[in-house]
């Protein structure tokens, strides 16, 4: 019963992290660039939920789930802005320039939110109500179940788009070989901008999912991008499956290992585990081994 609860919490937290990490990989695969403002995308999603909830009449309790389309829209637009300002002008330059241009965008978003909303952590409405559901002797939090459910829907939607649609095929082509994709007539700029919109919207959705249960504050972006980066690399650079697995690994340490040790120890053990994985699998969990081909 206890273990069920720990597992459910880990799964819920891991789901939210996985959305962040997958959004990061979507941009990465379309552009080969690291979007360091991605953590602020999560924060922006959380604050979009907070702001939308304020705009709605306060006496009718609106479930947070209904805010999802609005949050996705706002953060998709934010993603377009990030792509247009911080990526497109320098896309032919060393990828590390994009690293820093997106760091700059992150500074702008975080401090803009801090100055307008204030520094206090905020909370968004619960997704589908509060409380627990009794199941097989374990009390399962509605909020956790909702986080897992919404994540599952969003991820299946993404998988459908990637596998069944023309857009998805173009996406995968760009991820494998951008030069070839361009030669085949795929409009790279369009794919790039869509990836920024989609990737940031995924981050925004995670922001909404996290904002009730775990709150959101303007300075949260830094730790979130760190977690996404760890998840994506340890999973295998560019692998969507790997990113989700990496996110679950982090949540397993934060919730599972922390239960049986202590929080600082669990964090230390996570980093040691990361180093061990890299020692035995230098290409990450789901990464392709790098072959010499010159």
């Amino acid at each position: 019963m206890l273990l069920t609860q720990i597992a459910l919490n880990a799964l819920a937290l891991g789901s939210a992290y996985a959305l962040v990490a997958i959004g990061f990989v979507l941009v990465l695969n379309a552009t080969t660039a690291v979007n360091f403002a991605h953590g602020e995308g999560v924060v922006a999603g959380g604050f979009a939920a907070v702001a939308l909830a304020i705009l709605l009449p306060p006496d009718i309790p609106i479930p947070g789930l209904l805010l999802l389309p609005g949050v996705l829209l706002v953060t998709a637009l934010l993603g377009l802005a990030i792509g247009a300002l911080a990526y497109l002008p320098i896309r032919k330059r060393p990828p590390i320039s994009v690293f820093v241009s997106t760091i700059a965008v992150g500074i702008i978003i975080a401090n803009g939110l801090n100055a307008t909303f204030g520094a206090a952590p905020r909370t968004a409405p619960p997704l589908i109500g509060v409380g627990t559901i009794e199941f097989l002797g374990a009390s399962l939090s509605r909020q956790s179940l909702a986080i897992i459910g919404i994540t599952a829907v969003l991820m299946s939607g993404l998988a459908m788009v990637l596998q069944r649609t023309q857009l998805g095929r173009q996406f995968r082509a760009c991820a494998q070989d951008p030069e070839m994709a361009r030669a085949l007539g795929i409009r790279l700029t369009r794919i790039t901008m869509i990836s920024f919109a989609l990737g940031t919207a995924f981050a925004g959705a995670a922001g909404l999912l996290l904002a009730h249960q775990f709150f959101i504050s303007p300075s949260d972006g830094g730790t979130l991008i760190l977690k996404a980066y760890i998840a994506v690399v340890i999973g295998g650079w560019g692998s969507l499956r790997g990113a989700a697995a990496g996110a679950m690994l982090i949540a397993f340490f934060e919730v599972g290992v922390a239960t049986f040790s202590s929080q600082p120890l669990a964090e230390g053990l996570l980093y040691i585990a990361v180093l061990l994985v890299l020692f035995f699998r230098p290409q990450g969990l789901f990464g392709e081994p790098q072959q010499v081909r010159v």
């Binding site: 937290l13 249960q213 775990f214 934060e254 919730v255 239960t259 929080q263 600082p264 669990a266 964090e267």
Partner: peptide, 15 residues
């Protein structure tokens, strides 16, 4: 127990 400010889930420490 001491913990970092970024910790999200408090279930472990509360258990």
């Amino acid at each position: 127990e001491s913990m970092d400010v970024s910790v999200k889930d408090m279930l472990p420490v509360l258990l």
